[in-house]
């Protein structure tokens, strides 16, 4: 009897394709916000009261606000504030959290316990309440909103960095490096940081969406960007009162937040899959 022949199952690796697609989308978004001044069809700050609260039309795709400013132009200009303040915020918490976490994990002992209890305190604080408190003390404004969010968001990164550093300390290659006569700074810079940065960066990618929402939320409450600066959250807030009469007026900033958060979240997910060798092969 001849042996049965069967077709092999071949599973294609789609993570790389996803990474490229979402990566390009995210880069496009950032480029858009960089070049926003040249992309706007109208001056985003030009008031035209005769044409206020206009419905979406050929001239004004998303309509105009109560001062007759073109919504599309304002959303495009607002992207710079929204996206860059988010990226700045994420960069701050990643850097601060990582430095504290690596220090705690490497050093251990009392200082580790103290810093980790402090981070527990921040983790237990409701974010918005803290931001309100900061705004109350330092006043509103974008910078203070970023400061408030950074103050309560770094502990997550510190915890990841700390546990990763603890794991690294036990690896044979770090012990080999120690035996090779490498000092603390060298070991941290050459071996520990490059090996722990992956999971931390993945977390920051996943956080971009969340942070964008939180910043927009603070601006919506009037604690972030101040008018007339175009920012998506504050734009929604400004026009909130008109929502019942001219419902399209919050459409543009809402959509902008929705789409950017979605792109960054999908990118974050994909980066996480790509960084994990167990899912990379699938």
């Amino acid at each position: 009897m001849t042996p049965t022949v069967r077709k092999p199952k071949i599973i294609k690796n789609s993570v790389r394709t996803r990474l490229i697609v979402f990566g390009i989308l995210a880069v496009l978004l950032v480029i858009c916000s960089l070049l926003s001044d040249h992309l706007t069809p109208y001056d985003p700050y030009l008031q035209d009261l005769s044409n206020a609260k206009a419905a979406p039309s050929q001239q004004h795709v998303f309509g105009t606000d109560r001062y007759g400013r073109d919504m599309l132009s304002r959303v495009i200009v607002g992207s710079r504030t929204s996206i860059f303040s988010t990226l700045l915020l994420v960069a701050i918490i990643t850097a601060v959290g990582t430095v504290i976490g690596v220090f705690c994990g490497w050093h251990g002992k009392k200082i580790d316990t103290v810093l980790m209890r402090i981070s527990d305190m921040f983790l237990a604080f409701p974010g918005l309440v803290f931001a309100l408190a900061v705004a109350g003390v330092l006043g509103g404004g974008l910078h203070n909103a970023i400061f408030a969010l950074a103050a309560i968001s770094w502990p997550k990164y510190a915890r990841i960095a700390r546990s990763q550093t603890l794991a690294q300390k036990e690896t044979p290659y770090l012990r080999a490096a120690r035996l090779s006569g490498s000092g603390t700074v060298k070991m941290l810079a050459k071996h520990v940081l490059p090996n722990i940065i992956g999971p931390i960066l993945v977390t920051s990618m996943l956080d971009i969406g969340t942070m964008m929402m939180e910043l927009a939320g603070l601006s919506f409450l009037g604690l972030g960007a101040k008018p007339p600066i175009a920012e998506w959250g504050s734009m929604m807030s400004e026009n909130r009162a008109l929502f019942t009469t001219v419902p399209w007026i919050t459409l543009a900033p809402g959509l902008a937040i929705f789409i950017s958060v979605m792109i960054f979240n999908l990118l974050g997910d994909t980066v996480r899959d790509y960084a994990d060798p167990r899912t990379r092969g699938r």
Binding site: T171, P172, Y173, R175, A176, A177, L179, K190, H191, P194, N195
Partner: peptide, 14 residues
């Protein structure tokens, strides 16, 4: 010293 796990005794990124 020479360790038990050869692959893990070298930094995977170097």
């Amino acid at each position: 010293m020479v360790f038990q796990t050869p692959t893990e005794s070298f930094d995977p990124r170097r």
